[in-house]
Amino acid sequence: LVRYRTISKIPQITLNFVDLKGDPFLASPTSDREIIAPKIKERTHNVTEKVTQVLSLGADVLPEYKLQAPRIHRWTILHYSPFKAVWDWLILLLVIYTAVFTPYSAAFLLKETEEGPPATECGYACQPLAVVDLIVDIMFIVDILINFRTTYVNANEEVVSHPGRIAVHYFKGWFLIDMVAAIPFDLLIFGSGSEELIGLLKTARLLRLVRVARKLDRYSEYGAAVLFLLMCTFALIAHWLACIWYAIGNMEQPHMDSRIGWLHNLGDQIGKPYNSSGLGGPSIKDKYVTALYFTFSSLTSVGFGNVSPNTNSEKIFSICVMLIGSLMYASIFGNVSAIIQRLYSGTARYHTQMLRVREFIRFHQIPNPLRQRLEEYFQHAWSYTNGIDMNAVLKGFPECLQADICLHLNRSLLQHCKPFRGATKGCLRALAMKFKTTHAPPGDTLVHAGDLLTALYFISRGSIEILRGDVVVAILGKNDIFGEPLNLYARPGKSNGDVRALTYCDLHKIHR
């Protein structure tokens, strides 16, 4: 019993810090008490220290592992850092350059016999395009090294910054494609005289377009951006097909006994025919423009016929181009109408809503002055909100995010209106959640004399007048207030005048 009563005193000691020596009952000389009392004092002292730490809000209350900052290894790049964003855009520009100039170089340097010394005699450094290609190869190699040090988000939505895990993730992902696209074939085969082989191998750079397509997928929600990307894709495919079309004609031209190829026909049409040795002929500019003209006309199913396939190889390629053109029509131009419709969806919704308003007016036989006010209010409210119901949009977000959005939407009023000066951010967040926005066209009466005042109004834009009878008592403008002081009276009061809008007004109100 003594032991039980001794232990039962522990909660009292913990909360009230009572010393055991003052209790005459606990001072009985028993061996059990002498053993338990020192333990009680020690526990009391420890609990006292913990309570003191909690009340003082000291940093040592938290466990040590929670006080440590997340460790980022040296030379690790955050995937959302500004440097990584700028670097990704730079790589994107280099990939676009590669997609345009690599097929052009591979096709127009394929057994090209233009006048001038061969590239091997001039030297590697004197070729501007080769120098640019070398810079692109170096940048792609540097990009691989950067990807080995860039964080990523795993399946659990955690940012991984450990170098080993980053390397394994990159090896399992895009490393092989990036490595093949970054191989400097110019340096590996330079001086061997195989410019045709170098041009063909350099087309491996186009593998990076797969990554670019995935990154550009984030802009699919913007109709104008999608339309622009589709047109660029169409032009890029036409450019690639033009390079292939020229390569076919250029390879067949020296081996044909009869002059029936499209390059021969082009030379005869523009007065620059090929001679018996295969030299001469149109310039590279004429060849490229004509090839691009043929691919565009074939892809769009126009086909004027002034550039036509004559050999079997050219006919087979033309059939493939027609098939590609039909697929592009289905996948690209078939979506253009939907994209344009999405661009004008706001206008369509406006006309639909206006039609419903006019049908309501016609069905209920609203008189002319009231009908005009109804239409003007709808037009003004639509121009202010673009038909978007803010309350319906915010309803799907958590309250903390709703408060931040409301604070942002009402920031101008909260910053410049005098009653809100000096208020804490928590108070402003709470008030912003209570605001209701209303609009009024010129001549609209917001409050009639004798109406119950259940709200306090803040003028965000425009001006109003307060009338008693036919006498203008006051004219209020931006950041002015009218209405009933909230919670100042037990019952809502009545208006002693009319409140009429002089201009288009936007008002925020808080109800009782």
Results as ranks from 00 to 15, higher is better:
326 S>V: 07
253 Q>K: 10
442 P>A: 08
296 F>M: 13
144 I>Y: 01
371 R>W: 01
359 E>R: 08
80 Y>Q: 10
162 H>L: 11
313 S>W: 04
331 S>I: 07
448 H>Y: 14
365 Q>M: 04
223 G>P: 07
220 S>K: 13
214 R>H: 08
385 T>D: 07
409 L>P: 02
350 Y>R: 04
309 P>V: 01
171 F>V: 13
312 N>W: 01
120 T>H: 04
350 Y>I: 01
417 C>H: 15
247 A>L: 05
434 K>S: 04
245 W>E: 01
183 I>A: 10
220 S>G: 05
83 F>E: 09
304 F>A: 05
263 L>G: 01
198 I>V: 11
78 L>G: 04
158 E>Q: 12
256 M>C: 08
265 N>G: 01
82 P>T: 07
395 K>P: 03
74 R>C: 06
336 V>Y: 04
164 G>H: 12
258 S>K: 15
305 G>P: 06
185 F>I: 06
406 C>E: 01
247 A>M: 10
379 Q>R: 10
105 S>R: 10
339 I>E: 03
170 Y>F: 01
286 D>N: 01
237 I>Q: 01
432 A>P: 02
349 R>T: 11
314 E>I: 01
379 Q>Y: 07
370 L>S: 01
322 M>Y: 01
150 T>P: 01
190 F>P: 14
68 Q>N: 14
330 A>M: 05
100 V>G: 01
333 F>Y: 03
313 S>E: 11
253 Q>L: 14
228 F>D: 01
310 N>G: 01
281 G>C: 01
325 G>D: 01
65 Y>L: 07
412 S>M: 13
408 H>D: 01
248 I>D: 01
246 Y>R: 01
364 H>S: 03
93 L>S: 05
144 I>L: 06
207 L>D: 01
81 S>T: 07
280 G>P: 01
172 K>L: 05
395 K>V: 10
218 R>C: 08
78 L>A: 11
335 N>E: 07
444 D>N: 10
96 I>Q: 01
84 K>W: 05
107 A>E: 01
204 A>W: 01
112 E>G: 08
282 P>T: 01
349 R>L: 06
414 L>P: 01
89 W>H: 01
195 E>V: 14
442 P>L: 03
245 W>A: 04
328 M>T: 05
311 T>Y: 01
124 Y>V: 05
397 F>I: 06
239 H>W: 01
275 N>Y: 01
393 V>I: 07
437 T>E: 05
126 C>W: 01
109 L>Q: 09
164 G>W: 14
117 P>L: 12
279 L>P: 04
98 T>I: 08
211 R>G: 06
179 M>G: 11
437 T>G: 04
342 R>L: 13
71 R>A: 13
95 V>M: 04
377 Y>D: 12
145 L>N: 01
190 F>K: 14
432 A>G: 06
375 E>C: 05
79 H>R: 01
135 I>F: 07
